[in-house]
Design a protein around this nucleic acid. Structure first.
Length: 423
RNA sequence: UCCCUGGUAGCUCAGCUGGUUAGAGCACCUGACUGUUAAUCAGGGGGUCGUUGGUUCAAGUCCAACCCGGGGAGCCA
């Protein structure tokens, strides 16, 4: 029998004489169920780098770090259903394959059964997609939101929770090509309700993990402290993992408008000392450095930013009028909201949707979104339209926060990223 | 995709300005010892130095291209 072998032992549990353990087993019989060649087995009984374990993703669950992470991931996933079910939301399955490329959330993966070496061609030399499996160009979904809106106008409250795909060449610690997204959508809900829902969900999930996964959290907390101890003093965070979760749970998220956020940034030290790399002025999108300043330096807690300029946001977001939350004299804004978390940045992006057909169509034209392809979506506005709102929460980003891990590839079992789809 | 950084034994890494047979700790194998739990002691095996090409009498070391990892940025969840 060698290290890492799987065994079945028969014996007696007795009080242990050793330190650091209460009981031990005095074995009378050992059966080797599966031996293991310790020479060939990649995971050694020692501390491995996360990079190395990532290359052995098929075995990394066997380490205490990853088993803790994936137990917590389960708690979060289960808690999502628990929260929405308790609040009257219907779990709605949006499609994974879609024939529309106008969802507007990013580059898409093509789905095809055509032979790439010699696809059927039209007279003008372009590929004849009518010959393809679905009779049209089809792709993997980047968002279930449009379908969730259909569900909301029927069921009242609905949420999707499924895999989502982005073919963006993003190489960061918080992007995946395949990730799991939660997208609630509710009829008769405005942006305030949307924010309440988002904050309520985050807090429910944190509370659930604190309740059900304390052992794993303590392990990850200790792991994090060890890691922090090797960093220079200035980069260490003042709170441990569990303290951080409790803090977020017990304090209201800060809610500010984009216009106020810009004002805060303009008055901030880093701006006055010209330490920001990107310009701060009304109309530009908030960069990571700006979000970090607001969340980690200025407010020191999760922040919800609302009322972004229309030109930097998606076509389906509701245009603000005077008196609306987030309206600004400085330019056209929409009823959008981003929830920003410390260390991660945007964890939720949502909005009240544009329910007025004429306004929506004008906006689509302005942003070159092909209305013909989305005729079915526009039907929600044609036939008994209703004010409604929703958001998208990235499951892995949330798990990142709850586990205190630094790389999104470590909180999904088999990460799919540019140049990497093994296992 | 851009910027920075790295790729040397199974793992973590050392290898100064190019110079003979490339090192350490851990892991592994053999033996000894042991109420051990990061055991200990002695001995042993193990590397085409990311790939390809170039410079040179000589390349792990210098140059170029490419591949892959890590950090940051953009796109966003």
């Amino acid at each position: 029998m060698r290290d890492r072998a799987s065994v079945r032992c028969t014996g007696t549990i007795v009080e242990s004489q050793g330190s650091g353990q209460r009981v031990e087993m005095q074995v009378s019989e050992v059966e080797v169920l599966g031996d293991s060649d310790a020479n060939a087995y990649p995971i050694q009984p020692k501390k491995h780098s996360l990079e190395f374990l990532r290359e052995n993703a098929h075995l990394r669950f066997r380490t205490n770090t990853y088993s803790a992470i994936f137990r917590i991931r389960h708690q979060v996933s289960f808690g999502i259903h628990e929260y929405f079910d308790a609040n009257g939301y219907n779990y709605f399955h949006s499609p994974i394959i879609t024939a529309s490329d106008a969802e507007g959330a990013g580059e898409m993966f093509r789905v095809s059964t055509l032979d790439p070496k010699g696809p059927p061609l039209n007279d003008d030399g372009t590929v004849n997609w009518k010959e393809d499996f679905f009779g049209a160009e089809s792709r993997l979904t980047v968002s279930g939101q449009l379908q969730a809106e259909l569900a909301a106008t029927a069921l009242g409250k609905a949420y999707t929770f499924g895999p989502t795909f982005r073919a963006e060449n993003s190489n960061t610690t918080r992007h995946l090509a395949e990730f799991w997204m939660i997208e609630p959508e509710a009829a008769f809900m405005d942006l305030h309700g949307d924010m309440d829902l988002a904050e309520g969900l985050c807090k429910h999930l944190i509370a659930r993990v604190l309740k059900n996964s304390m052992d794993d959290l303590q392990f990850l907390d200790a792991r994090l402290k060890e890691e922090e101890a090797q960093k220079p003093q200035a980069q260490r965070s003042d709170m441990g993992l569990i303290d951080r979760l409790k803090f977020v749970l017990e304090n209201p998220f800060e809610r500010i408008t984009y216009t106020d956020a810009i004002d805060i940034l303009l008055r901030s030290k880093p701006h006055q000392k010209k330490q920001f790399q990107f310009p701060v002025e009304w109309g530009v999108d908030l960069q990571s450095e700006h979000e970090r300043h607001l969340v980690e330096k200025h407010f020191k807690k999760p922040v919800i930013v609302t009322g972004y300029p229309a030109q930097i946001k998606a076509f389906y977001m509701r245009t603000n009028a005077p008196g609306d939350f987030g309206y600004s004299e400085k330019g056209k804004t929409v009823a959008a909201m981003d929830v920003l978390f410390p260390g991660i940045g945007e964890i939720i992006g949502g909005s009240q949707r544009e329910e007025r057909l004429d306004v929506l169509e004008a906006r689509m034209k302005e942003m070159h979104v092909p209305a013909e392809e989305l005729w079915w979506y526009l039907d929600t506005r044609r036939f008994g339209t209703v004010p409604h709102a929703g958001f998208g929460l990235g499951l892995e980003r949330f798990v990142l926060f709850v586990t205190g891990m630094g790389n999104i590839r470590d909180v999904i079992p088999f990460p799919r990223t540019p140049k990497s789809a093994e296992f």
